[in-house]
Amino acid sequence: MTELYATLLSWAVTLSGYPAPTEPPVVVPKPHEFFVQQACHGQECKVLGWYAGGHNLYVDEALDPENNLFASSVVVHEMVHYLQAVARGDDALRDGAAFRVAPSCTEIVSWERQAYAVQREYIMRYGAYLPIGVSMAHVQCEAEDAPQR
């Protein structure tokens, strides 16, 4: 793990409240087409980072986290997802599995909101403001996610 990624992991730990993991994630730069195919199921999208389980987290190779605050914030966001997985015990899964038990929509939305909140706080600590995660403000889950009686 490079010094930069170790520092960004430290930010994710500090701002999220999760404990430092015993094993850090591996940051893997990938071309945009990787995200289109893997994270967006073949549809064009704006995904710049993706944690899909295990120890790897993927970032768009066009990002420059060493010299760009937004780019480094994307890495911090994905590291929060890694920390969430470690806390759930899902970081050790193999064969492309991201979860031991499929999460509910409510859980996924909660995890995203937390990662965006950490990303925003990280940016604000540098004295900047970027409208990060504003699309999450109105995200709601379908009624079928509600507990059954």
Rank of each mutant, 00 (worst) to 15 (best):
S104K: 04
Q37T: 10
V75Y: 06
G53A: 05
C141G: 04
V80S: 01
P103Y: 13
A97W: 12
Q38N: 13
E112Y: 04
V101H: 09
G49D: 01
S72Q: 05
A98G: 14
L93V: 07
C45G: 06
P65Y: 13
V26L: 15
H81S: 00
S10V: 09
N67I: 10
W50P: 02
A143M: 08
G54A: 07
D91R: 09
M136A: 12
V75L: 06
A85R: 01
L69I: 14
R88E: 06
E144I: 12
Q119E: 05
E3A: 15
F99L: 00
V59K: 05
A39P: 07
Q114V: 04
A62G: 08
Y5T: 02
S104G: 10
R125I: 12
M124Q: 15
R94Y: 09
L48D: 06
D95M: 11
Y51M: 01
G96R: 05
A39Q: 06
V28M: 06
G96L: 03
N56R: 14
A97L: 15
W50K: 00
Q38D: 09
V109A: 04
Y5V: 00
E3H: 13
Q148A: 11
S104Y: 08
E61D: 15
R113E: 03
V86Y: 10
T106A: 13
T14K: 13
R113F: 03
P31E: 14
G49I: 02
E33C: 06
P31A: 11
E107M: 06
D60R: 07
P65T: 12
V75E: 01
W111L: 03
E142F: 11
G17I: 06
Q114S: 05
L15R: 04
V27E: 02
A117Q: 14
A87D: 15
L83K: 03
P24E: 04
S72N: 09
P65V: 11
E144N: 13
T106H: 11
H55E: 13
L130E: 01
